[in-house]
Design a protein around this nucleic acid. Sequence first.
DNA 1: TTAATAGTGTCTTTCAGACAATATTAT
DNA 2: ATAATATTGTCTGAAAGACACTATTAA
Lengths: 251, 251
Amino acid sequence: MNGEAEFLAGYDATAYPAVAVTVDVVALTIRDGRLCVLLVERAEHPFAGHRALPGGFVRADEGPDAAARRELAEETGLTPGEGQLERVHLEQLKTYGDPGRDPRLRVFSVAYLAFAPSLPDPSAGGDAAGAYWMPVDEAAALAFDHDVILSDGLERARAKLEYTPLATAFAGDEFTISELRAIYAAVWGEDLHAGNFHRKVLSVPGFVEGTGQTSTRGGERGGPKPKLYRAGDARLLHPALLRPTREDGVR
Amino acid sequence: MNGEAEFLAGYDATAYPAVAVTVDVVALTIRDGRLCVLLVERAEHPFAGHRALPGGFVRADEGPDAAARRELAEETGLTPGEGQLERVHLEQLKTYGDPGRDPRLRVFSVAYLAFAPSLPDPSAGGDAAGAYWMPVDEAAALAFDHDVILSDGLERARAKLEYTPLATAFAGDEFTISELRAIYAAVWGEDLHAGNFHRKVLSVPGFVEGTGQTSTRGGERGGPKPKLYRAGDARLLHPALLRPTREDGVR
DNA sequence: TTAATAGTGTCTTTCAGACAATATTAT
DNA sequence: ATAATATTGTCTGAAAGACACTATTAA
């Protein structure tokens, strides 16, 4: 059968149950050295009082990418055009559409993954009274299937840090190698050897480029003033930075 | 604003334009040493006479995964329960939902990627008179945005072969190292060094396991009888088999 | 001074890739 | 016999990881 073709040729919108399409965003940032996710507090049933990923309906005149960026802007209080929101890395994660995942009607949710540099508390901007950043290891019992979505997003984020330079999306314009290492440590949940990490990062072509500048201060507990770097022009890391303690082969 | 929550609380199905959700499948197989994709011939407008990826509407009682497997079964003539269809690897690829991608109504398509061992011609089974396997390098000018979906699917497939043992999903139950190498060559579009590939495959834990058997015949143009292997229990290849001529870093 | 950090050097092991060599089989 | 293939061996260079070392700075 010519599935889609045949179906749509005879499609009558009123003959089928209503379907809604939303976007949900797994927005990650680093705060105080911990990996945090943006959550909202639900006011309405179902799951009233539960935490959930920020999200909303895809409007008729926008694609899902635009909807995700709009939702992220609404929840974080960032406004388009100032460069901040544009610097947030946003990519599609996966679509969740099992029957019953929303008790009210059939909802397909296109989930997105966002990497943001440290942002002000979302309650400051917008009307998101119940929005905040929460460490990912404390984020549980989320509404709907958002626990699964968050888990999938974290795994994707951890994998992406291996073979892309996206860790720099968590940092400011200029950063030190130590700050970059802290990002990897927060996302992967394990410490990395400082010396080997330093040499490795500088050896990957296009990962970072030096600014020629040096930080005005050393570390909080001593140490020399580190050099400053900015993101390079590589889109893939080669060779990749592989996670350490991944059990071989995953049988 | 509590995006999804607020919206859905006040959701009235008749107050919003109709939205449809379909699945489209990029089903890949190897035929005569070439990577091929399953296509259908469209009979109806729009894009009548054009080729398209097989797909169809997600029914009310099934999730998108089940819908994709059902569509694949309908187009290939494979029937569930015989093991053949179950051995096809199927994974979600990406969702496409830009306004205007279907000229009739708003359609979100959840695309899937399938790896199948060599299958009979689809015209034999089912009622898919206009369905066939076509080499991917000849598949162009597809309906809707299916060129983009196919391109995304091919890139995903090429990447997956690097760090997963999914190449074995293109092979039969038992295969030789040469056959496995031919699969890599077909998907990546470049020849691989026989000696190095052989040693590499056997050195990755859990990639393949020997059957103790030997092929009954050597190659068509001579050579010793090769040993037979089956898929091992690894779900990730470590270390990975990286593609050769990828330009460093991709700036 | 003390302790912590930045950055570099060294060594070992693993692995990728080039290349060679040998044995086996279809034609 | 000839040519193609399967399989193993050898060598070189890249790269990961463990560890050590020096220089610099905050407290």
